[in-house]
Computed example of a mutant assay.
Amino acid sequence: MKKYFVLSVLGLLAAGQSFAQTGFTKTPKGALYNIVKPGNGAKVKVGDVITFQFTQKNDRDSLLGSSYKMGQPAKVQVQPSKSVADLMEVFSLLSVNDSVLVRVPTDSIFAGHEESRPAFLPKSSYLNFGIKIQKIQTMDEAMAERTAAMEKQRTEQAALAEKMRTAEVPSITAFIADKKLTPVTTASGLKYIVTAPGTGRKPKPFDTVMVNYVGHTLDGKVFDSSIAEVAQSAGLQQPGRNYEPIKFVVGGGQVIPGWDEGLLLLNEGSKATFIIPSKLAYGERGAGDDIKPYSPLWFDVELVKVIAGKGKPVTPAVAAGKKAAPKKAGAKKPAVKKKVTRK
């Protein structure tokens, strides 16, 4: 069956072409081929990377695979042929822009493992292919092209992300004006207002904190809370949840970056409002139905308790909010871990 799956990436050039025609040549391994439209371009060599369009059919004209349906051509490096199933001996006979019809005997493909033969490829039948060679490259040329394409994609994604982040600014500005707020803005872009100062100690990175919170989108929708009355009033469905301050290591990447930064600015007992741009929240991914990609968020928080002592540091990627920190065995699952979720 392995050989069959190798063939599944190849195919037949035109859905309506008939293979009951003369003009086929037999390869040493038993494939039949007919170059129906020569391209007269550069010849394929072993080691080259070829780009080609394909479709694939059985003898009943049923389409089994198609690069056209996949939306992009196939690529493969031409290697010395190991079996009739790999079609490498046919590829090595072709040139740029050649259109070729190929018939591969299924008896050769399934020799020794007939139990893997599907019903649509009976004995004495053929797999029928059509291939059009679009491009021939050396491996270095193909790798350079791939690298350039990836770099272009990264550049385009970065430009889109910056455009979306810039589009957040008017909504944040309107929110602040509507609420008549005068926040402090940090270098990262976090905005915060201390609404009730606390008198306790400030947490240090990797201290453990206990926090009550209410999370809103800027249009006022409550998407999560550690407070039972708030969750009930907002209609949140969080069956089995214990409504109590959540406990986690601050600065350890267990929550979104805006929280890690903002909580380190507060004293124990403080209440504050955080206005968090998406780059310090859930960025391009968003979180569930309520938090769309590139959504700034609004949190009301209360730093209930600070417990001195080093928590477990995490990698820079985790601390930057790339992924959640691992949960210790037996620890309670925090309500806010990498993202504030609706439960």
Rank of each mutant, 00 (worst) to 15 (best):
D86P: 02
D48K: 07
E302Q: 13
L93K: 11
R146H: 09
D48Q: 10
P334A: 09
L64E: 09
K333P: 00
P170T: 15
K26M: 14
I50S: 10
T147Q: 12
A159N: 09
K204H: 00
M1I: 15
A15S: 14
K152D: 11
F91Y: 14
N212T: 07
K123T: 14
V222S: 02
E168M: 11
G321I: 06
W298H: 05
V336I: 15
P38W: 15
V314D: 08
G220E: 00
R165E: 12
D289E: 07
I172H: 06
A272Q: 01
E244M: 03
A324N: 12
T147M: 11
M150K: 10
Y243G: 01
A319H: 09
F206S: 03
E115G: 11
S99E: 14
K26P: 02
V255Q: 02
V249T: 12
T22K: 10
L10R: 15
K180I: 02
E261F: 01
T25P: 00
G235L: 10
N267I: 04
T138F: 05
I275P: 04
A15L: 10
Q21I: 13
A234S: 04
D207P: 00
V211D: 01
P326M: 10
L190M: 09
S83M: 04
Y4A: 15
Y33A: 13
S188V: 06
K69R: 14
L64N: 09
K337M: 13
A231L: 06
A167M: 07
D98R: 05
P293A: 06
A142N: 04
A287E: 11
K75P: 03
G130C: 13
V102D: 04
V301R: 00
E156A: 13
L190Y: 10
V102G: 04
D48F: 14
D140G: 03
P334R: 11
D98F: 11
P239D: 04
K163V: 05
E302I: 00
K337C: 08
A15P: 15
P326I: 13
G65W: 09
T341A: 12
G16P: 05
L190I: 11
Y68W: 05
F274V: 01
V336P: 01
Q232R: 04
K292A: 13
A144D: 14
V46D: 09
K152P: 03
E268V: 00
L10V: 15
L93A: 07
W298F: 06
S270A: 14
S67R: 04
A287D: 05
K202P: 02
A161V: 12
A331P: 12
L190E: 09
A161G: 02
H216A: 00
D300C: 03
A272V: 03
A228M: 00
V78H: 06
F91C: 09
P80H: 03
F52N: 10
A320L: 15
I109M: 06
P28L: 10
I133K: 11
G269K: 06
I193L: 14
V211Q: 00
